[in-house]
Simulated scan of single mutants.
Amino acid sequence: MTDSTDSTAVPDAPVVGDVPSVPPVPAVAPAAGAPTEDERAARGSLRRKAALRWGAAAVVCALAGTGSALAVTAQDRTDLPGLATKSDGRYTFPALVLPALPSGKAAPKDNKNRHAADLRQLLLPVPKEAGGSLTPTTQPAPLSVTGGGTPSASASPTTSASPSPSASATTTNASPAPGAAAGPGDCDAFVAEQADQAEARALLLQYACRTAVVREWTASDGTRTQIRLLSFGSSGEAFSAFAGLRDGKGPKDVPTVGEAAPTGWDEVYGITLATRTATPQEAPPVRVAYLAAGDLVGVVTLSNPKGVPAAAFRQVVTLQSDLLA
């Protein structure tokens, strides 16, 4: 009988107790170029150090950017190198404050009644560019007219703080300190500055110029500014004097002065304005403005042999108008 069992059958695996033994698996050699455990640990350490360095750099950049932004925003743009706008001639004035009125006196309404405030307080203060102070100032001594050539001279009202620390009570014929508000005036000092003194004197006598104050300064750009306020008995007399001065020959020692109606200027309610500009028109050495404000007439004169900046002239005239309105 033939045995059907395959003679090549696998022999029985050796048995150890009841558990068959498993032959050991040979160790697999690492692939060529694969990192070892030490190499992987070293690389992880490098990554952590790089992350720390980049994090520290980001923090430093954020702090530097924040500091730079604070430094830039804390200053005025005009104070930063490379960002300052070229000056067009305008000045830096202290904050304008209307003077206090004497007890029982009211402010002018529509500039129809008289200004009761101290005339010196109605003068534009001195700008920073001329050595002016931007801090509050003390009260000046009261005005008292000492007489001086006009038959109708009378005492000017008193009180209030001076817009300039250098304000002092002197006659207009004296040479005031830079920026000083000179007063009381006899109106003769103004007449002496006019090209046609006889006409100017007759005009001020006809309409009874009562007193006058003046403020003068010279800015760092060489522009000399003079502001005169002439006081009259009524708004009608003041306007008639204003019209005569506006149509007159203007200041002496000035090249041909022609009318130049201001265009694009902000109108100040209650103020009548007329301007005149000396030739050449491109760079006029003198600019003059006449203001009518109730019982007051203002004459603003800016002069500079190199030419008076139009922006400075407009600024001074507008701010002086604001104080009179």
Rank of each mutant, 00 (worst) to 15 (best):
G250I: 03
D266V: 08
A202W: 03
T301Q: 14
P142S: 14
S175F: 05
G33R: 04
L119E: 12
A130W: 06
T66E: 14
L273V: 10
D88S: 02
G307M: 07
G82F: 14
S133Y: 06
D266S: 11
D88H: 02
T263L: 12
K112I: 12
Q320M: 00
P280S: 08
P102A: 00
G55H: 03
H115V: 13
V288N: 04
R276N: 06
Q281S: 15
V191S: 00
G250N: 11
F242Y: 15
T279N: 11
K128N: 07
G233A: 14
A289C: 06
S21V: 14
L122K: 04
Y269F: 01
T211Y: 00
A289W: 05
A69Q: 11
V25M: 09
G236Q: 14
V268S: 04
R314V: 06
P125R: 05
P255M: 08
G222Y: 05
G294R: 01
T78I: 11
R120D: 07
K109F: 12
V257S: 15
P99D: 10
L204T: 08
D18S: 15
P178E: 04
N304C: 11
L229V: 07
A34V: 09
A9K: 09
A293R: 10
P262R: 10
S164C: 08
D221K: 11
T275I: 00
A42Y: 00
A243Q: 13
V126H: 04
D188M: 13
P99C: 06
L296T: 01
A42Q: 01
L123Q: 02
L98Q: 14
L204V: 09
G236F: 07
A181L: 05
A41G: 02
Q206W: 05
A325P: 06
P262I: 03
R201M: 09
P284Y: 13
L205H: 10
G179L: 07
V59Q: 08
T36C: 03
I227H: 02
A182H: 05
T172K: 08
R246S: 15
Y269A: 09
S164D: 15
S303V: 08
L119C: 15
A198E: 12
P309E: 11
A200L: 03
P184A: 10
L245N: 09
S321E: 08
L123H: 01
P108T: 13
A41Q: 07
E39R: 04
P108V: 11
V254D: 08
A117R: 08
V213T: 13
E237S: 05
A200S: 15
P305L: 09
P305R: 12
L96F: 13
W265Q: 04
F239P: 00
K306W: 06
P309I: 08
S240H: 12
L124Y: 01
T223W: 01
A117P: 02
G307C: 10
L323P: 00
S321V: 09
D188V: 05
T36E: 07
S144Y: 06
K109A: 15
V213I: 13
A238R: 00
A174P: 00
G67V: 01
A130F: 02
W265A: 10
R215Q: 10
P14L: 13
T159F: 03
G132V: 03
D38I: 03
S133E: 07
A116P: 03
L80P: 05
A189E: 07
V317T: 15
A312W: 00
L230I: 01
